[in-house]
Design a protein around this nucleic acid. Structure first.
Length: 241
DNA sequence: CCCTGATTCGC
DNA sequence: GCGAATCAGG
């Protein structure tokens, strides 16, 4: 097997979607994890949290780091921030987000003591996806009204996922390979299921989703006191279609 | 041990 | 260009 355009496209998409090299290799088949990594680098893809940064860093570090100040903003008193909700994968098998990373959400600088509980829901899958669901601060995420579509939450993979090969895609629907930066990546269904696909509409420029789904993905952050702590949450997590 | 990605280097 | 071997962090 060689790197055909299709395979490269799959690699790109999955890599950018946060899939691990192993997952990608498995999905592609007939390539090793190393091959995937090697290819990814040759393609210029990169920038991904790596366990290994730099090995034996020479002897003397005569570079005390310049004065860079990438300091994030400190939130305003009554902020109306954006809350990225669904970050699910663009992948044939496990979940992972296209990760457009909508600006780090500034959490109130005040006393954010108390409950630091991430409402990640669902008994963590064997392999935690990428940035799954970024609730903002304590109680920072909003629940949707009943009847409204739930944001697709990373489903717990059944077992060892069968890496649904790219070839096993649904006809007529927007599959993994159809994704690009111009079409809505909002997932419909769940990865691993036979009819899993993506919205496919034209994106809201600057966002990974169409206007409609941006409405689901990004919601105004209410002032703290107006937020309701979300205790319910059915066992196993929501699973809506 | 397992996993991860990065890098090297012979092919 | 490719990818196994190796490295190194979690």
């Amino acid at each position: 097997m060689s790197w055909t355009d299709e395979r490269i496209q799959t690699l790109k998409t999955m890599w950018e979607g946060g899939q691990t090299a192993s997952q990608i290799a498995e999905a592609l088949g007939e390539v090793s994890r190393n091959a995937v990594i090697g290819k990814a680098h040759r393609l210029g893809l990169q920038a991904r949290p790596s366990p290994v940064k730099s090995h034996s860093e020479a002897t003397v570090v005569a570079d005390p780091a310049p004065a860079l100040a990438p300091v994030p903003v400190v939130a305003a008193p009554e902020p109306v921030t954006i809350v990225p909700e669904p970050v699910v994968a663009a992948a044939p098998s496990p979940p992972a987000p296209p990760a457009p990373e909508p600006a780090p959400v500034p959490v109130e600088a005040e006393s954010d003591d108390e409950e630091e509980e991430e409402v990640a829901a669902a008994p963590a899958p064997a392999r935690p996806p990428q940035p799954i669901l970024r609730s903002v601060g304590p109680g920072g995420f909003l629940r949707q009204a009943p009847g409204e579509q739930q944001p697709p939450i990373a489903p717990a993979p059944p077992r060892r996922l069968v890496p649904a090969k790219p070839s096993a895609e649904i006809a007529g629907k927007t599959g993994l390979l159809d994704l690009n930066d111009r079409i809505c990546k909002w997932p419909l269904g769940h990865p691993g299921e036979p009819d899993f696909h993506f919205c496919g509409d034209k994106v809201n420029p600057g966002f990974p989703y169409c206007v409609d789904h941006c409405g689901h993905a990004y919601q105004a952050q209410l002032p703290r006191r107006d937020r309701r702590p979300p205790p319910p949450l059915p066992f196993g997590g929501p699973r809506v279609r």
